[in-house]
Amino acid sequence: MTGLRVQDLSFAYGPKQALDAVSLSVGTGVFCALLGPNGAGKSTLFSLLTRLFTTSDGKIDIAGHDLAKAPNKALARIGVVFQQQTLDLDLTVYRNLKYFAALHGISGQDAKARIMASLDRLDMAERAHEKVRALNGGHRRRTEIARALIHAPSVLLLDEPTVGLDAASRAAIVDHVHGLAADGLTVLWATHLTDEVWPPDQLVVLHQGRVLADGTAADITGRDPLRDVFLRLTGAAA
């Protein structure tokens, strides 16, 4: 198991329990959709997975590294796309990626080669020298995904990456990231939009800090539309 494993993870903001004994495992090359309504605890889980928060309740393994015991090794194996945009608008796409590469200790020709390869993978190579401010929302998101791949992570975390995008950009990004999983990357994709989940995907339904369902989307939904199953699950749990 070299992907992502979360065991009995709990976290509270003071008296408010945000995550309650959450467990999930995502294998290599699997696209896992973390589906939950707003306030389900998805962003809190992402903050714990990226070590912006820490907790002593539970365990996180990333590509075989315990995040609590070997944070630097674990963080080196993840790529992250946050819900909130984290690009410097006044820098070019290339410079944004170069800065990120440096934060991972990658420099010089190695950085250049990785940046161009990563941009190429997301069909963004021709925009490398454009300022981020000039890009549309979809291209900015692609830039962030390309950036998250520079250091060849084993696990890619995306926290509602299609928020605010038009339908075409959203579909293109969903396709791209499914393609990355097919190439062997472990993907955890947080969303509240059921149309972003494909039947063969692993689906984890999170609601009020608890995992309500975990399996392939096809198995969980049966013959019913995912939207109906999701509303039924989260409605029943509310």
Partner: peptide
């Protein structure tokens, strides 16, 4: 967040 999630 970008800075704080660096492995350094």
């Amino acid at each position: 967040r970008l800075l704080l999630t660096s492995p350094l």
